[in-house]
Design a protein around this nucleic acid. Sequence first.
RNA 1: GCUCGGGUGGCGAAAUGGCAGACGCAGGGGACUUAAAAUCCCCAGGGGGCAACCCCGUCCCGGUUCGAGUCCGGGCCCGAGCACCA
Length: 817
Amino acid sequence: MSEPDKYLPDAIETKWRERWATDRTNEPDLDHAVRPLYNLMMFPYPSAEGLHVGNLFAFTGADVYGRFKRMQGYQVFEPIGFDAFGIHSENYAIKVGAHPADLIPKNIANFTRQLTRMGGMFAWRNVLSTTEPSYYKWTQWVFLQLYKQGLAYKKNGAVNWCPSCKTVLSNEQVIGGECERCGTVVEQRVLEQWYFRITDYAERLLANLDDPTTMDWSETTVAAQKNWLGRSEGADITFRASDAASSPITVYTTRPDTLFGATFLVLAPEHPLVTALTTNAQRMDVEAYRAQAAAKDLVSRKVGDQQKSGVFTGSTAMNPATGAQVPIWIADYVLMDYGTGAIMAVPGHDERDFEFATRFALPIVRVVAAVDQDAGTPLTAAYTDVDAGGHMVNSREFDGRTPLDTKAAITEWLASRGTGKKTVQYRLHDWCISRQRYWGPPIPIIYCDVCGPVPVPEEQLPVELPALDDFRPDDSGVSPLARHAEWYFVPCPTCGQQGRRETDVSDTFLDSAWYFLRYPSSELTDRPFDRDRTRTWLPVASYIGGNEHAVLHLLYSRFITMVLHDAGMLDFEEPFRKFRAHGLIVKDGAKMSKSRGNVVVPDQYIDKWGADTFRTYLMFLGPFQEGGDFRDSGISGPRRFLDKVWDLVTLASHPDCRDAEIRREVLIKWHQTKRRVAEEIEQLRYNTAIAALMELVNVLREQNCAERRLVSELVQMTAPFAPHFAEECWERLGHSSTIFDSAWPAFDAALTLEDTITIAVQVNGKTRGSVTVPRDASEATVRAAAEAEPAVAKYLGGELKKVIGVPGRMLSFVVGG
RNA sequence: GCUCGGGUGGCGAAAUGGCAGACGCAGGGGACUUAAAAUCCCCAGGGGGCAACCCCGUCCCGGUUCGAGUCCGGGCCCGAGCACCA
C-alpha cells in the first residue's frame, strides 16, 4: 500500500509557477476584453533589501481581489513595475559606493524573483521600470504637455532645500520640517525652480472627492487630501497706507466679521512692500529682522510653540471700517506663501495675534462677546468661537448680530466700497518638480541666448540621462549633469545656435504620476498610451496602496490625469475609480524598523511554509484595511487549514468516492459559506472570509463529508488566497484547465436558511433562556414555547407590560412588579 | 491645537441595536507512540457553587432603549496625518 500524497508546497509552487508562465495564464488579451477589470497596486521602489512583508501584504491583498474578480468572469489585468528612479535609489548607491545604473537592474531582478514566488497574478509582459528610456521618454513628454498648456513654469522663490540630499523638495516631501527621504532638517533657499500649476486644479481636485460616481475611495484618504488641499473661505481686504505714495496692502482673513477689532497689520518679512513701508528710523531694525528670518530653517520658522518675534516698520495704514490708523509690523509667523503674505491682526479673536499684541503691548479690542458677556468684558485670551451664540460688539451698525451673519455682511459692505472681496484660499502650493540630482529624467528644456527656454521637440525625446561616473550632488544648487559638457551644450532646436540643456531632473513623483496609463500600452514605442486600450482598461477599477501616498502620489496622479483629460487625450479626469488603503503590519505589537531589528523578511517564511501558507496567513492576521500584528506563532494555523483541505481533496479524488446525499445541515453550511466568502472578499474582509472557510472545513470533517462537488467548490474559494495549492487540488479533482478560469461557486439563497432557529428570550432586558422553533414559526408559537421554558417562566411572575419580538432573533418580555 | 482611525480573553481578532468572544494562536487535560514530533478528542473571559444555576464583564462617566461592544453627550489613553495656513 502506498503512502497517501502529502502536501509539499515547494514542489507544487514550482510546478504551477512554471505552468502559468508557459501558458501565459496571467495575461489577458489587452485588445479584446469583454469584461475588462484593471486591478492595480502601487508599484514598488526596488530597494537593495528586497520586498519586505509590508509590500507582500499589500500585493497579496490586491492579488486576492484580482483572482476573485477573474473567477467572477472578468478579464483581469494585474500589472506590476518598478519605481526605480529617484533620490532613494541614488542615496543608497552613494552609500555603498556603487552606481545606481548598476544596482537597479540587480534589485529589479531580485524583486522579480520575489514577486513571482509570491504567486501574484502579474501580467509580466507589461512590466515597466521608470528608469528605462522607453518609459521616461514619455515622462518627459508629459512634462512637455504641461509646458505647452502653460502649466509648467520656472520661478525664483523660497524653496525647501535638503542639505543632505543637496536638492530642493516639494512641500509634500517635507514632513514636519524634515526631508521625507533622509530625515534631515530642511533649509530655506531662494532658487529658480520648475513648478507645475497644480493650484489651478485645487477646486476640481477637491470637488471630485465628493463625487461618488467617479471616486469611491477610502474615507481616510479622502480626508487626508481634503486636509492637504486646505480650502478656506474668507475675504481679501485692502488697507490704505498713510503714506500716499505707498501701495495699498491687501490682507487675507477668514474672519472679516472681526474687522473692527483689527488693531495692527502684520506682513511676512519677505513681503515685497516691506522696503517701501519701512521708515528710515526703522530701517536698520527691519533689515536685521529680515536677514534673521531668511536664515532660519523652516522648522524653527514654522513651529509655533516659541515666542513670537517681529519688528515695527514705522508706517501705519487705515482700517477701512474704523478709519483708525493702525501700525504695520513684520513678523515671521506670517508666511509669504499663504494668502497674500499679509494679515490684519485681531488680537481679541486670534490666539497668535493675541500673543503678539501682548508681547509688544499693542491694543486689544473685543468685537465678539459670548452669550453672557458684553462689550466691556475684559479679554484674558483670544475668544475664537464663531458659532457659540456670541454677538458683535464695538462694531457700530453690526453690533448685536452673530459673527457668521456679520462675516457675509461686512464682506458685502467692503465690496460695495471697493476695498475688499470674498475669496477662497487653498493651502496647496504649486508642485516644485525640479531636483538638482542625477538619477531621474532630465527636464526636456534647452536654454538659448537668442530664443530663451525652448522645449525639446517631441521627436527628439528621450533626452537620455548620460552615463556619469561622478554623479554626486553638491551644495551649489546645480545638478551634477552640468558637469558633463558634451551633454550640456547642444544646438538650440529653434535657431541652431549653441544652447545649454536644463540640468535639473524631474521629481520621482512625476514618474509615478502617470505609470498606470502606460501599463496597458507598455510595448508601444510610438505613443505613451493607446487610445483604444486606454478606453478599454481605464479608469482603474480597483487600486490598493498605502495611505502614506495620500497627498503625494495619489494627488499628483489625479492632477496629471486631469491635465491630460483637458488636453483631450483622456476621456476621464479621475484615474482611480476605487481606491482602498491597506493597513500596516506591525511585528509582535511594535512597528517594524531596521533599528529595532524586527523587520520581517518574507523569503525565510516562504522557504519554511510555502507562499500559499504565507499569503493565507497575511490575509488572516487582521482586517486588510486595518493591518495587523505579525507573529511567527500564528502561521501554523493557516497551514493546518490548508493541510485539512488537502486531506479532503485526497478523499474526494479517490476513485471510490461517489456522489452521495449531503446531509441537510452540511448543505446549509455549504451555501451559507459561499454567500459569506463572496461578500467578504468583495469588501476586502479577507480575515473573516478565511474564518468562514475554516468553519466549513471543520463541519465537513466532523460530518465525515468529502463529497466531490462540495470539496471542489471549497478549493475554488481558497484559490484567491492559496493559488498554487488550489491549482494542484483542482487538477487532482480531475479538472484540466486553470482553476482561475472556472466560475466562482454560486449559492442557492433558499439553502442558506436554517430549518430551525434558536431564539433568545429576554425578561426585562436580561437573557433568561432560548427556544428552538421552526424557521417560519409565528410569534405566538415562539411566545408559547418561551413561556413554557422553565428558565424563563420563573421570571414571568409579575404583571406583563409588553412583549417585543424580533422575527428570527429574539423575544423580550417586559414585566412589572 | 486641528483632522482621521482605534481601545473587546493570555495573544491576533469576530459580532445588520438582539445569547459578547466566531475563526485562529498560545495553554491545560486525554488518545495514539518505546519515546518525541505530527495528528485526533476534550476544556478554556473572571468570580461563586457539589450541582442545576447565580453574579460580574467590551477604557471611564452619563444618556437614549424592553435591550448598547454597537447609537448620543462628556472625558481618558494609544496610533496616524496635518500644523504659526490668518
